[in-house]
Every structure is written in C-alpha cells, then in structure tokens.
Write a protein that binds this DNA or RNA. Structure first.
Lengths: 244, 244
DNA sequence: CGGGGAATTGAGGCTTCTCAAGCTTAGTGG
DNA sequence: CCACTAAGCTTGAGAAGCCTCAATTCCCCG
C-alpha cells in the first residue's frame, strides 16, 4: 500500500493549484521543493493533533485526511476532508480549545505548503480557502436537510469534483479509500445504514462500488444547491414547501 | 418593533469588536461613522441576495441575519447566523453559483464594515473570521451527531455566548427573536419536533422561554466539543464508542 | 372584536438506529 | 498451502426518533 505512495509526487497537488491560479515557473519549483519535505502518514493511525503546535500551513500530496471532532462519549463527526492539492491552515486559534483534529483517513502524504510570496500562489491559496468554506456550507446543508440517500449521492459527487481538480479521478469514477464506517462519521449516519443505502443506490443503478473504485452514473448536470435530480421519489419526502 | 431599532447605535457592534481586539480611538470613530450609513431590514421580508452584486463587507448593528441555502423543493437550511458585531464578507465567488443568501431573520440594522486600515480593526476582523469558521464546524458537529435535544441546547448555548460578546445578553438569558420554525431550519428539524423538544427541556428545568426571552439553566461549564453535560440520559443514546 | 401568524397537540408512519450475528476478504504464520 | 485472525461488509429483527398531516389554541395587533 505504501509502495504506491512512495512514488507519490507533487503532480496532483500541482495540478490542482494550477487549476486555481496561474503559477510562475518559480512558484511551480517552490511547490516541487516543498514536496521533497514530504511526510508519510499511516491511515487512521498517525494523527496530527491540531490545537497545539501549529506547524504552519500544509499541502496534501496524496491520500485523504479529515478534520474530525470527537465527542466525549465516543461519537465522532468528520467535519471536512482534505484531498490532494488541498491546503490546510490551522486557524489562528483564539481559544486554546481548538477542538478539532486532523487525521489521516488512509495512508497519506503531506508537505509544508510553500510560502505565497508571489501573486500566483497567493491567488491559489485564496481560491482554495474560498472553496473550503463552500464545502463547509455544503456539508451543513447536506447534514441538515438531506436524506441518507441524498447525502451519500451529494457527497460522492462533491468528492468526484474535488478529486477531478487534482487529476485523481477517471471519466466518471474515482478511488474510494474510506470504509463505510468512516463515511458514516462524515455523513451523520451509522455504518449499517450507509451500507443499506449504498445497496439501494446500486439497485437503482446510480452507483457502482467494486474494489475500492466508485463509479457514479448519470451525474447529468449538478444542480448544486437544488439537490434532488437523480434521486428516487421514495427518498424525497415532499416537505411542505414553506414558501415564505 | 422598528421603533426600538431606530434607537439602535453602534454600541453592540463596537463592544464586540473591542472584545476581539484593541481599537484605536480613530478606529472607534470609523465604526461610528460607518454606523451612520446604516440600513434597516424588515424581518424575513427584505433579503440581500448574495451571489450577485457584493456590496463589500457588512457589519451587523442590530438584529439577527442568516446565511440560507434553499432547495428547489422548498426545503431550506440556515447555514449560519449573524448577530450584532458580526462581520460578513461574501467570499470572492469563484463560481457565479454562490448559492447562499443572506436573509434578515428579524428586523435588523446593518452598515458597511469600515475598512481595516490599521492593526486594530484588522485583528478584529481576523478574529471574527476565525470564529466564523469555528461556528461552521460546530454547526456541522451539531447536525451530524447530536439529537434534537442536544442540538437545541448546544445552539442556544452558542447564541448566548455570541450575544454576550456584543453585550446583548443578560445574566443567563437573552432575547430570542426567531420563530420555532426558523430554529427548525437551522437545526435540521421540523417546527413540530422543535416545539416538543422545547417542552421537554422546560419540563427538565433546563430552559425557560417566555415572551421572546430565553433563560438557560445550569449552564455550568461548557464542555465545548464534548456535548452532553446537562442532557438527560434518555436522549443520549450510548453509541458504541468505537475507540479506534 | 376579528384576523393571522405562531405555538400546541394528536395520531400514525417512515427513516434511521441498535444490537447481534454471519459472512468475506486479505494478511499472517506454521 | 492452509488454518487463523482481524477488519470490513451484510443481513435480520425490533425499537426509537423524528416527520407528516391536520386541527386546535394562543397571542399580538389593527
């Protein structure tokens, strides 16, 4: 498993950053140099405890990480995901009770994010931060108002889009390294229900998930804030549309 | 109702900003001057459509606003709240499909946020932005892993803390201008269930809510990321603590 | 005093959870 | 080469939380 990671380069991260802003040759070199200080993380084992020593902004080269909040009774919620090309900066913590941790959800590679001394990287980081916020808002809408079926569909769509930016996705498929239980912790469900819902999606022909590869069918248009679309009526209770 | 707002000043906003960073006298004056360009918004009527012309960062002087996402089928999710002293800046939208709106949830007063030309306001805005992100993360954990009872309790605690910063809260109470239905849209519930849960909280002596004023009992210590605390066991299903 | 939005209440149903077992797959060591 | 293990995936049955659909009551306001 780690063997494949050993061949990990800055390719995916660089691809995403360049998709966000035009980088000068100097900046591209800065990214490559930063990538040489890469750090490998074992999946769900090693975790960067956020909330203490901030090592400065990080750049994800490979793998999937997650910002996680743990409850005292064992419940856990994955707040957001970090995939190749994503930049993570611990917010200048006011209260020492930062309370969220960054953990590697599978074997991953990270490196310090090169300093944005020029316009290109600065723009890329700004764009990345803006997208991060958009993902948080989307996660809120997902958890607050979508059914299990919709949540999974919406989340898979999001991850597909994000991985595509870094060139980590195929035509309509991508590699899914997470367990159903991890997915459950992200979507506010139990692993049992995630499992059953996935089966329903397979039956509906919306999804294929064989051997760590997810293939999303008929992703025709992404209504973004509208949800629905390719979702069977059965799971879309017609909430009384309170048009106020 | 609007009468009280007419007497609204910059007092609350100024108080919050000064709690976040030390402001020079010049900066305090800048805030007061900005407050003179205030704009009154009718509750749940007028709404600033975000996603088109961004009028620059805004400062809330009075009232409660919300960032809202609407689904095509009528469902709606309140993503975050803005209370006096909060600063809102539309993220430099990459995709024109911004998809979230800012709505006045009750009669409110806003003004353009004064430019941060000096360190004080700059720090205050930075601190405010950091808190905003923390609130988003908290909202995600709330929606993903808390019961209705816990969600309401946690949300009320958060709003109490936030209002306190601006001096808008009393000893252990504050004015709640929202309807139960609005609350439901924020917490991913229905108004009926919010109502029943509130009754349970009143029965448990955790809460008083008479005539638009909420009083939270025994807020002894706020475990922040731990949840629980003053929550009856009945609503705290002992999830199998998967200590991984 | 009438009107209307908000808060309550009741009954029934469906999504999702809990608890437990089996099953599959991949990795390990004899 | 094959038990043996551990982790993840499936499945079943029953319970619970939350939702839907109406009514009905309450309360503020003109």
């Amino acid at each position: 498993m780690l063997t494949t990671l050993l061949s990990a380069t800055d390719a995916h991260a660089l691809r995403r950053l360049r998709a966000l802003a035009a980088l000068s040759e100097e900046e591209r070199r800065a990214v490559s140099m930063a990538a040489e200080q890469s750090q490998h993380l074992r999946g769900s084992r090693d975790l960067i405890r956020a909330g203490q020593r901030t090592t400065g902004p990080l750049l994800v080269l490979a793998g999937w990480l997650g910002r996680v909040r743990l409850f005292s009774d064992g419940r856990r919620q994955i707040l957001s995901f970090l995939v190749p090309g994503d930049v993570f900066q611990e917010p200048r913590t006011l209260e020492p009770v930062a309370s969220s941790t960054v953990t590697a959800l599978c074997d991953s590679v990270i490196c310090p994010a090169p300093a944005a001394e020029d316009a290109g990287l600065r723009d890329a980081y700004a764009a990345s931060a803006a997208m991060d916020e958009a993902y948080l808002l989307r996660q809120i809408a997902r958890l607050g108002r979508m059914s299990a079926y919709e949540r999974i569909h919406d989340w898979l769509s999001e991850m597909y889009e994000r991985l595509s930016l870094a060139g980590c996705a195929g035509q309509d498929s991508f590699t899914m390294p997470l367990t159903q239980e991890t997915l459950a912790d992200a979507l506010g469900l139990t692993s049992v229900h995630v499992n059953r819902t996935l089966q329903a999606m397979r039956r509906d022909g919306v999804l294929e998930w064989r051997g760590g590869t997810v293939r999303l069918k008929r992703a025709a248009g992404k209504p973004e804030a509208s949800s629905s679309a390719a979702v069977p009526a059965r799971v879309l209770p017609s909430r009384t549309a309170a048009a106020r």
